[in-house]
Simulated scan of single mutants.
Amino acid sequence: MAQRALLIAGPTASGKTAMAIARSADERSLIINTDSMQVYDVLNIISARPNAEELAQAPHKMYGYVPPSVRFSTGAWLRDVEALIQQEGTNYQKLIFVGGTGLYFDALTNGFAQIPEIPQEVIQQVEEVIQPLDAKGRAKLLAEKDPEMAKRLQAPDPQRVARAISVIEATNKSLAQWQDEPNEPSILQGYDIEKIVLNPERDVLRERIALRFKLMMQAGAIEEVEAINALKLDPTLPAMRAIGVPEISAYLRGEMDLEEATEKSIIATHQYAKRQRTWFRNRMKDWHWIDPLA
């Protein structure tokens, strides 16, 4: 009998953790983080990692294990997952992958393009150029540097633009060309796979996002941002750009009041959820879509 894997994707605050825990109860299951922000240490509250009570209900792996000083990549995540499965996978009847990072799920199910590791200094230089740009500026820069990727990226968000430009700067080859080459086989090849996208009603999700962030503020988000700022990290690092970190940092510097920092964080979370939904609609049409809150 093939080993089973359950993949639970969805926008932020859609109830993924609750579903993963509920679905872990019927079989001996291992829950594996599939969210690019929840890999980072320090950012426990801000990244909405499972809390202590939730962690106690089932084995969880790959949460909060990467220092925030690291520019963690999809390839690095996939390599860690592969190593984890080899070491512990057979101890469980079912692997449950849960998170909101579409690229992680894509690499997991479709294999991953074998792009050379990009030097950190190249990534840092590119991110410093991109940081002050708005969406229009990022799109223009990408069109100049890599016209083929500019055609493919429907939403020129900072992370994807930085990735595309870093690849062509370091390899003299478009990310589009790398992506068009045959991928390595999926590490879940041979598994019995169930794929779910959580798709709550938009207004309900907006309410949940607002409530959750306000609860985060009460639970110690400010202290968490103080802790990561104390590390004096490069502001272009992914962990330093996690939603809530720039906004609360501005509050701590006296540049805005707490109410404004909270509201800006909630708005940024809404925008992120919208981008996630767009990605899932474009790339996960064949998954089972459900409203977990109906």
Rank of each mutant, 00 (worst) to 15 (best):
Q3W: 06
L6A: 10
I8L: 14
P11S: 14
A13E: 09
K16M: 03
T17S: 14
A18S: 14
A20S: 12
A20G: 02
R23Y: 12
E27K: 14
I31G: 01
I31F: 01
N33D: 00
D35R: 04
D41N: 11
N44Y: 10
S47P: 01
V66N: 03
P68L: 12
R71Q: 11
V81M: 07
L84R: 05
L84M: 13
I85L: 14
T90W: 04
N91T: 07
Y92P: 01
Q93I: 04
K94D: 02
V98S: 13
T109D: 09
G111M: 09
G111Q: 06
E117S: 11
I118R: 03
I118D: 02
Q125A: 15
V126Y: 00
Q131S: 13
A135Q: 08
A135Y: 10
R138Y: 04
A139M: 13
A139T: 10
K140P: 00
K140C: 03
D146V: 09
P147N: 12
V161H: 07
S166R: 06
V167P: 01
I168C: 07
I168K: 12
S174K: 08
Q179L: 15
D180K: 13
N183W: 00
E184Q: 14
L188N: 09
Q189C: 07
G190R: 08
K195R: 14
I196Q: 09
R206H: 11
I209L: 15
R212N: 13
L215S: 09
M217C: 14
A221F: 04
E224T: 03
E224F: 03
V225M: 05
I228Y: 00
N229T: 08
L231G: 04
T236V: 15
A242Q: 09
I248W: 02
S249E: 14
Y251M: 12
E255N: 08
E255W: 03
M256L: 15
E260S: 07
E260M: 13
T262R: 04
A268H: 07
A268L: 01
H270A: 02
A273C: 14
R275E: 10
T278G: 11
R281A: 08
N282M: 09
M284N: 06
D286H: 08
W289C: 10
A294E: 12
